[in-house]
């Protein structure tokens, strides 16, 4: 019999998590086939020139509503090596908590100057940087009054590095009750942007978010 791995947690008050989280413990992968479980994402240059600045739809159009922020940091593997040329696909809600996604039926206000999706690549030293609008929190469970705290989604792929994560904001009142934050427990702080001042650039606030791709896959071919 295959030996057993993790039992995945179900996010409290998250109905979708209850519907979609496997109930059986994950199976460990036999060493003889371990390599086949390491997808290697090919480098795809699909960023567009202005996508790093999500505070406006294009350079000739006005700024969106809300606070402009910079998010910057490094992408490294757990052994500290920078991950070069990785693709970061970024999306976040607008100032009012609305996504420009055809399946967002929340009815919250759309901002005609905010697109909410962008892509950047990490540099030679694994650093990245983008600008966006500080997202609004939104009511995820009106029936029990649970909000999703402000967050920015990041989907990261580069060679054997593959993770989807979210950056959260410090001192937000809804952080403590977020199902995903609860599942992360003490490790939640690792997903927190660290504020820095931005006196020399045209944004209101900076957040440093250093990303570490864990797990064996990320370093499998080193």
């Amino acid at each position: 019999m295959t030996k057993l791995g993790r039992q995945l947690g179900i996010g409290p008050t998250d109905n979708t998590s209850d519907q979609r989280t496997p109930r059986k413990r994950l199976r460990l992968i036999p060493e003889a086939v371990r390599e086949s479980f390491v997808p290697v994402v090919p480098a795809r240059a699909v960023t567009r020139q202005y996508e790093w600045d999500m505070t406006r739809i294009s350079p000739d159009l006005p700024r969106a509503d809300g606070d402009a922020i910079e998010v910057s940091g490094t992408l490294r593997t757990a052994d500290g090596k920078p991950v070069r040329g990785a693709l970061l696909e970024i999306w976040n809600a607008n100032h009012y908590g609305r996504y420009r996604h055809v399946e967002d039926h929340s009815g919250l206000k759309l901002d005609e100057n905010f697109f909410g999706m962008g892509r950047v690549l990490t540099d030679y030293d694994g650093t990245y940087r983008f600008w966006t609008i500080s997202p609004g929190a939104y009511l995820a469970r009106p029936d029990i009054g649970r909000w999703r705290p402000k967050h920015i989604h990041l989907s990261i792929s580069g060679g054997p590095v593959r993770l989807i994560t979210q950056m959260y904001f410090p001192d937000e009142p809804n952080n403590a009750t977020d199902p995903m934050a609860i599942l992360m427990g003490d490790a939640f702080g690792r997903n927190m942007g660290k504020p820095y001042a931005t006196p020399d650039i045209d944004v209101d606030q900076g957040y440093r978010f250093d990303i570490v791709a864990g797990g064996r896959n990320a370093t499998f071919f080193e």
């Binding site: 996010g11 979708t16 998590s17 490294r76 593997t77 757990a78 052994d79 500290g80 696909e89 999306w91 996504y99 996604h101 399946e103 967002d104 999706m117 989604h153 989907s155 993770l163 989807i164 994560t165 979210q166 995903m180 992360m184 490790a187 939640f188 690792r190 997903n191 990303i211 570490v212 791709a213 864990g214 797990g215």
Partner: peptide, 15 residues
């Protein structure tokens, strides 16, 4: 080893 960033859900609105 550096502590890994937590994976998180992509949510309902993966673009």
């Amino acid at each position: 080893a550096l502590l890994p960033t937590n994976e998180d859900t992509c949510g309902p609105y993966f673009p």
